[in-house]
């Protein structure tokens, strides 16, 4: 594509405005226009405004669940990812078993299984009642256990992207395998996988809507509850969609700025 543009520019200097039009981020204009139109509707239409303020009450829970779950799944993912590349066959197989198990089951099913089967089972073995753990905590546990497996694969790919020579150089300086991993391989691997982790943060924000099935009062659940009494399906679900679209757009813009800054740093 880039070559085609260059050739056109070189042979027909008069049509540069065309390439300008082709490269303009129209998608961004269209999406922000949709968001603006909806925002105006919310400002001027009392019905829209009511539904907006209702769903807004779930925003905090959505963000809370997303941020807490994502931070913890980074930790779990790092541990599992290191296990995945471990020399010890026991550790490696434990990690692979876990990761393949999680990746082989739909997320919605896992959320049910973890929240209503695994967590109560663990609670009982510790002599606690079935309902000892709140539903929000169960939702976070489920998301962490699921995303930990996904993020482990990102870390594994990052570690494997660092050439064998780096580990050899560190080892030949007398560092242990753990030291070489910690001071030489991991810092480079993590930098390489930051864009992929950013994508998973956005995915996590969207998937947090799934925990509405547990009755956790995040945005989707608040919207569903509201609809069940108001029957305003169209307004409610359009506004709910708008919420997620705006959040993911802001998040991906933030991540892009962050990435550009990191690249500028070298």
């Amino acid at each position: 594509m880039a070559i085609e543009h260059d050739q056109i520019m070189a042979s027909r200097p008069g049509v540069t405005w065309r390439t300008g039009l082709a490269q303009f981020p129209w998608w961004f204009l269209i999406i922000t226009s949709i968001i603006t139109i909806m925002a105006l509707r919310i400002i001027f239409d009392p019905i829209y405004r009511d539904i907006f303020t209702t769903i807004l009450q779930g925003l905090g829970v959505t963000l809370y669940v997303t941020v807490v779950s994502f931070s913890l799944s980074l930790l779990l993912g790092l541990v599992l990812g290191l296990g995945r590349v471990a020399k010890n066959p026991l550790l490696r197989n434990l990690a692979i078993t876990y990761i393949e198990f999680i990746r082989g089951v739909p997320m919605l099913v896992l959320i049910f299984t973890i929240s209503f089967a695994v967590v109560p089972l663990v609670a009982r073995t510790f002599g606690l009642p079935n309902n000892a753990v709140s539903l929000t905590t169960r939702a976070i546990i489920a998301l962490v256990l699921i995303y930990g497996a996904y993020i482990a694969e990102i870390f594994r790919a990052g570690i494997e992207s660092i050439g064998r020579g780096q580990m050899e150089a560190a080892r030949s300086l007398g560092m242990s395998r753990v030291q070489a991993m910690r001071y030489v391989v991991l810092p480079q691997a993590i930098r390489n996988v930051l864009p992929a982790l950013g994508n998973d943060l956005i995915a996590m924000l969207k998937d947090s809507s799934l925990v509405s099935v547990l009755g956790v009062r995040e945005m989707t659940q608040v919207a569903r509850l509201s609809v069940s009494t108001s029957f305003r399906y169209e307004e409610t679900y359009f506004i709910l969609t708008l919420f997620y679209l705006t959040l993911t757009l802001i998040l991906s813009l933030l991540l892009q700025v962050l990435q550009r800054r990191m690249r500028a740093k070298g």
């Binding site: 050439g163 020579g165 780096q166 050899e168 150089a169 560190a170 080892r171 030949s172 300086l173 007398g174 030489v184 810092p187 480079q188 930098r191």
Partner: peptide
């Protein structure tokens, strides 16, 4: 390894 230094064809400096 503490007694033996090694220099590689592709340098293998730590880029970070």
């Amino acid at each position: 390894r503490a007694e033996v230094g090694m220099v590689f064809q592709r340098f293998e400096l730590f880029p970070h």
